[in-house]
Write a protein that binds this DNA or RNA. Structure first.
Lengths: 243, 243
DNA sequence: CAGTGGTCTAGACCACGCG
DNA sequence: GCGTGGTCTAGACCACTGG
């Protein structure tokens, strides 16, 4: 039944999704061996290329570790909720699963010189601002305050943006574009007056600031967002393989 | 002359290095087209697989951007000194090129409960401490204070560790192991008494803290390092492709 | 429409880990 | 020595971009 119906994902993505589900279901004990490449080729009826592409994806997500000569094993840290890989955008979005994010449109704004400097943009430009707080079940203090700026080229679709899905995904769908790259600049800052009030932290207390720029396939900056996290509530975890 | 002499890097790495040098030399104007895959196949006399593997590496480093149907272009931000990709360990090490790093062995230490908590480790364990400062040409203030802890299993090689090369590379060589993974936890903290003094910042001022764990192929933590950067001098930049 | 990069096959040889 | 994953070849078809 591989008829039409949405033209389906590539084979390697399907294999990866299947194996990811098995890993997270715990079919292979943490630290224990997974099937070899040739076994997976037989099981899915695909070539080694396809299997390796799927495994490459899982490795990038930090779920598995591979060694020439010995084999493929499930990464013991990989499943831990504490160390959540964020090198992948899919996880970058749903990061801190169990958290909820509420944002509201504020309206069009013209960047002040101060804001422009924070955002690494030009003063005087017109952007459409959304403000939001991310809260975590069980915490009375928010874990993030976010200001998101959408480029004026999308003024027509801004009123259609809804909660429940990330802004940039909606811009892709409503604006007919595709985000090709996300850049992140991570810094430590002292809480400003507004952040301090909303995040319920003392003014000037250490906060993690994450500036994200969403770039489409043609290289235009479509959206910028500036998130501020209380230093005591938030850690950005990542991993790097193939040193 | 591809005789022996160190068994050489894989072909795709050589192709990648060659293209990287050309890009950084400015042979292709930023934003302009690079040779197509088939052109590179012909030029280097290799298969498309090898060329694609090389280009995949350059893409992961943020140097190029690719689009089906149109082609491969040099990423306009990629060459910028301001936005330096750090998703690759090679750059993670020589990050902020132009900076110098001086460290000194302090000796064996037994982790206090406080330190153990900072490092996410067990109190009472014995580690070998190195302390260092990273300074940048033209700045009178250091951009980082680093405390690096080497596992007691490497007590024998600790006295042989020298400046001028990263500690973990020396552990690989001297200890006969291989680092397979590096994890990073990035947080915002307030400067403690010692950091404040060494970094010449006020106490409790916002700083970026980076805790790195170096894990070998068997899953053991070989080294941990805790770097503290003044918030106003240091930004951690990264990028994510294939959203 | 021709040409690009994305996916995929069926082979091959090799370096490495382990028994 | 055997099986693992890492590298590599020479093909193929497809989706997409652009003129």
């Amino acid at each position: 039944m591989t008829t039409r119906a949405a033209r389906a994902a590539p084979r390697y993505a399907q294999v990866a999704a299947d194996l990811r589900a098995e890993i997270q279901r715990g079919d292979y004990g943490a630290g224990s061996a997974m099937p070899t490449e040739s076994a997976l080729c037989a099981r899915y009826g695909v070539s080694r290329f396809t299997v390796r592409e799927a495994l490459r994806q899982l490795q990038a997500e930090g779920l598995i570790r591979r060694r020439r000569g010995s084999g493929t094993v499930v990464d013991p840290d990989g499943g831990s909720a504490l160390r959540q890989s964020l090198t992948d955008v899919k996880e970058l979005l749903q990061y801190a699963s169990g958290s909820t994010y509420q944002f509201e449109p504020v309206g069009p704004v013209v960047l002040s010189p101060q804001r422009a400097r924070d955002l690494n943009a030009e003063a005087g430009e017109r952007w459409h601002l959304f403000e939001g707080l991310r809260t975590m079940a069980g915490h009375h203090r928010p874990i993030a305050y976010t200001a998101a700026y959408v480029h004026d080229a999308f003024a027509a679709v801004v009123p259609k943006v809804r909660r429940g899905e990330t802004i940039f995904r909606q811009l892709e769908r409503l604006g007919g574009i595709k985000i090709a790259k996300v850049t992140q600049d991570i810094r430590a800052i002292g809480a400003g007056a507004r952040e301090a009030e909303l995040l319920k932290v003392p003014r000037r207390s250490p906060c993690l600031s994450i500036l994200r720029c969403y770039v489409d396939t043609t290289g235009r900056i479509v959206e910028m967002s500036l998130s501020v996290h209380p230093g005591d509530l938030f850690t950005y975890s990542m991993h790097i393989d193939e040193v």
